[in-house]
Design a binder for these strands. Sequence first.
DNA 1: ATTCATATAATTGTTAACAATAAAGGGAAA
DNA 2: TTTCCCTTTATTGTTAACAATTATATGAAT
Lengths: 232, 232
Amino acid sequence: MNEVSQKELEGTLTQTKTLAGKVYESIKAEIIRGELSQGSKIVESELAFKYGISRGPLREAIHRLEQMKLILRVPHAGSRVVTLDIKTMHDIYTAREALEGMAARLAARHMSDEAIVSLQNLLDTHEQVISESDGKTYLQEEGNIDFHHRIASASQNQWILENLNGELYQLIRMCRYQSGQQPTRPAKALAQHRQIAFAIEQRDEELAELLMRRHISGAWKIVKTILELQND
Amino acid sequence: MNEVSQKELEGTLTQTKTLAGKVYESIKAEIIRGELSQGSKIVESELAFKYGISRGPLREAIHRLEQMKLILRVPHAGSRVVTLDIKTMHDIYTAREALEGMAARLAARHMSDEAIVSLQNLLDTHEQVISESDGKTYLQEEGNIDFHHRIASASQNQWILENLNGELYQLIRMCRYQSGQQPTRPAKALAQHRQIAFAIEQRDEELAELLMRRHISGAWKIVKTILELQND
DNA sequence: ATTCATATAATTGTTAACAATAAAGGGAAA
DNA sequence: TTTCCCTTTATTGTTAACAATTATATGAAT
């Protein structure tokens, strides 16, 4: 295990001022990238030494990771990195379907006309990227997230926004990263995004929610297939 | 500010073994009961003295309260008890509508036949309590919670279950307690519960979700009226 | 009187040592 | 050899002192 220098800790644009915050971001990234493997044990003194800090702020970082459900902690027995089995991921996608469906409904209700135009411009950009790179559609993945981020923001519901962009997003990113998922049929996803955006433009709450739920439900089926292949 | 004795800390059936866990439960109860008033500042050293512990475990308790969204923390500037304004409560009820609607759908899919019978027996008990006490329908409130708990459990979705029974439940309880809400038309609520239970029995996922969402949406309208009256 | 700067106090963030608990290992008895 | 108990070790929980930061108050200059 290597130590981490102070400069590395700063990382890319960490706006947290406390040690606990910085180390939290670092460990979170390690878990998502799989450098701390699923189910592996977290020993406080080891990590504290690795990051060159004392156990105090490290413990705070661990608590925050526990809150994000990235690690599992049991009193007096330590912590382990979460294990993303199929059942867990299914639960997460189902919760996401409920919340993001509602977010789409709220977006259809609250999104400003300018924001809707901007959303459709974003989709135009995605279309260009897809047609241009034709195979290297990696960027689409980030763009995909961007679309869902905008819907969540437009819901203007703080609770839903925080949970979609926080806990659920991190876990899905971790699963996606570690299973090496390719962007799944970007053209099809784009078409669905356009449908949703259209429903929002029409202020059709019912349809916006329905389409978003189908979209996420479809995404889960693909993820499920990938995960099942890997577990055999 | 009074100190709290060790025995009081034990409280009613606290199964947590750590100081941080016990103090977390105590402070949580104080916040929900309004003894720590909304928006008031949390000073670590004061609370640590009050509970007779050091700032270490107290800070852990505060982190957990922050996670439950019962307090708001800003680095280097301390923590404040959350303020449950109408917008916040609306967000919470909307999120609950999405999640508990999905939970009802999943319950219709997964709940065992025995569990369904047991659920209907629970509603029979509620009916008796309502007809007997006729005015003192306080118990109905707990029973109401009981019903919603069972639906959440029957969903067999860990993420949804934890969020409904954790964060959202605590905040709604806090709002209910501090606004002195009476049980709202228990007979009507019971009728709606019966409808939902019936839909689940029929394995009608669509209907179960629809009815649960209406039920919660209706509850919000009543809560909203109460809150608006108090803020004038 | 008002505003800005400085100094003071209050509060949070961090550290390292200490205590308590649970896991691991070794030895004796069956 | 296996099982149980005891001892040892490793790890987490807790404490109190220290450092860093922010808020408050005081006073001088405009």
